Computed example of a mutant assay.
Amino acid sequence: MSEQDPSAKDLDYIVPALQRGLRILELFNSDQRNLNMNELAELMGGSVSSIYRIVQTLAAMGYLQKVGKNGYELGPQLISRGFTYLASRDIVDVALPHLNTLRDRTSLSCHLSIREQHHTLYIYRSFAQQRLSVNIPIGTRIPCHCNAMGKMLLSSMSEAELESLYQHVRLDDHMTSGPRNLPDLKLAISEAREQGWVLSRSDYATAIATAIRDHEGNVVAAINVSGPDAMMAAEGVLERTRDMLLECARQISAEAGYRPAALT
């Protein structure tokens, strides 16, 4: 190998155990969904004892899942994280031009988020270049019940799903004006579902949020428009902003494949 070859220069930094763990995950595909320890060892060119600890580590972290007495398949952690990433990248690509246009039309900041368990995860922002602007960084996580987008992200969940999600979550640990218990959260989600949008006010700022749906009608993301109360309180601004937000969400959802059921 030449001196300039990056693979040659980086060889000293390879972690063999990590490399073997990733190779084990790569063994699973549409033709090999379930492999036992002997099959894994054979495909890896080693013994069962040489890969045992790696397999157990992957299983403990949820990247592999035990099936039957001695079989394994890809675990929920790997699958959910992979699909969450792919879905979030796709929706960013679709939503980006629409949110930038919405920001230019309203002179207000716009954000895009997805749900990670009971948190709102911000994955894109279109920042309004004003002295008074709401600017929440990409990667920020906020409990869903504490913000407008979070309530919209929860709006497609059934009562049973909400109960399961919030079974071990305390809602009164957060210093917000949001729901303080599960019945109040269910009521807020019901109102969001019926209205189709949510308005929230906090820290001298106002936000309006609505949902983004995919081709199956599922809520896959949420968007908002947010700005200082001083701007949003001007006559007619709130109503015009809400209407532009809803139209923006309609366009993004349509590009994501959503087709509302025809009225009869």
Rank of each mutant, 00 (worst) to 15 (best):
L162W: 07
I212C: 07
L199P: 00
R103W: 13
S164V: 10
N224K: 03
A211K: 07
S126K: 01
T120S: 09
R193G: 12
I212E: 03
A256V: 08
L263S: 13
R193W: 05
R125P: 08
S2G: 12
S109L: 03
E73M: 04
Y63I: 02
Q77I: 12
H215N: 14
A256L: 15
R240I: 07
A262R: 11
Q56N: 13
M175P: 13
C146Y: 15
N34M: 09
G82Q: 03
S50W: 09
I138F: 10
R213F: 01
R242T: 10
Q117K: 14
T140P: 05
M37F: 15
D203I: 06
Q130H: 14
M44T: 03
R23W: 10
D31L: 12
A249Q: 05
M231V: 14
A41D: 06
A188E: 07
R105F: 14
L246P: 01
Q195G: 06
N147I: 13
Q167I: 05
R23S: 09
L199N: 09
Q77V: 14
R259W: 02
G68S: 05
I189Y: 04
D172K: 05
G21Q: 15
T57A: 15
E116T: 11
I14H: 04
V225F: 02
G82Y: 02
S158P: 00
H168Q: 13
Q4P: 05
L182W: 04
H119T: 13
E159M: 10
Q19P: 01
S253F: 01
N36A: 04
R180Y: 07
N38R: 12
L35S: 01
G75I: 06
F28E: 06
D173H: 15
A205K: 15
V169L: 04
I189G: 00
E42K: 14
I252C: 05
T101K: 15
P183K: 00
L182C: 06
V134E: 09
P183W: 03
R81T: 11
G82V: 00
M244R: 14
E191Q: 12
T101R: 15
S177E: 10
I138L: 07
G178W: 10
L246I: 12
V237Y: 08
G257D: 02
R103P: 04
S164P: 06
I138E: 09
L27V: 04
T84K: 14
I91R: 05
R115S: 04
G196V: 06
L245Q: 06
V219G: 02
T84D: 10
L27H: 05
A256M: 12
M152E: 05
I252E: 03
R201K: 14
S200W: 11
T57C: 09
G21A: 15
A148F: 01
M1F: 09
S200L: 12
L199Q: 14
P179M: 03
N36Y: 09
P137I: 07
P137K: 08
T106D: 01
V94A: 07
A249H: 05
L199E: 12
A59D: 11
R240W: 06
M232H: 15
P97E: 01
D31Y: 08
K9H: 05
R53L: 13
D203V: 10
E239Y: 12
L35F: 03
V67Y: 08
N38H: 12
Y166G: 04
K9W: 04
D104Q: 13
A87I: 03
S158K: 01
A211I: 06
R23I: 07
L185E: 05
S177P: 06
N100C: 07
Y204I: 09
V198N: 01
D93H: 08
G150S: 02
H119C: 08
M244A: 11
R81C: 10
